[in-house]
């Protein structure tokens, strides 16, 4: 399992977490390259099907990260994201996708350090969890 490099799909909002990732870069902080960032305008636009698709295509984990409560650029998009996360955490574990593979965090625009730490911790956790089994199953 030592050579297992997880793939993590991260949906990050333009206004907070993407900016934090940008800050992490410009601050020359390092974090593992396992994460594929997908910039969205708001976590409120992340339809459950994006997350489901990521898992079915073999993502080992999915991160959704946006603004702290009260800070959403669109006032309440992150609250909608939180409800959808609640929904998916009720569905996906039943079909063999460990709840630990799906994470929601709030990382503000000035939190570059926090962003790098979150990714480091997540990669370490998913490495111990092992690969998403759906990756090799004949599932489409």
């Amino acid at each position: 399992m030592d050579d297992f490099e997880p793939t993590i799909i991260a949906f990050v909002c333009n206004w907070c977490t993407y900016t934090a990732a940008d800050l992490a870069g410009t601050s020359r902080l390092s974090y593992p390259t396992n994460v594929r960032l997908i910039r969205v305008m708001c976590t409120g636009m992340v339809d459950p099907k994006y997350i489901i698709k990521a898992f079915l295509e073999g993502a080992d984990a999915v991160l959704v990260s946006g603004c702290h409560p009260g800070d959403c650029h669109y006032i309440n998009g992150n609250y909608k994201a939180r409800r959808r996360m609640k929904l998916l955490k009720a569905i996906l574990p039943q079909y063999g996708f460990d709840e630990k593979r799906l994470k929601l965090t709030w990382i503000g625009a000035s939190d570059g350090i926090q962003f790098a730490r979150t990714i480091r911790e997540m990669v370490a956790e998913i490495k111990t969890l092992g690969p998403n089994e759906a990756k090799h199953a004949a599932v489409v």
């Binding site: 409560p69 009260g70 309440n76 609250y79 909608k80 939180r82 409800r83 996360m85 609640k86 955490k89 994470k103 929601l104 965090t105 709030w106 990382i107 939190d111 926090q114 730490r117 979150t118």
Partner: peptide, 15 residues
């Protein structure tokens, strides 16, 4: 529907 303060259980605690 949604509220400002709910479902803390699905949010990872960030330090």
């Amino acid at each position: 529907a949604f509220k400002a303060d709910e479902y803390a259980d699905v949010v990872e605690i960030t330090h």
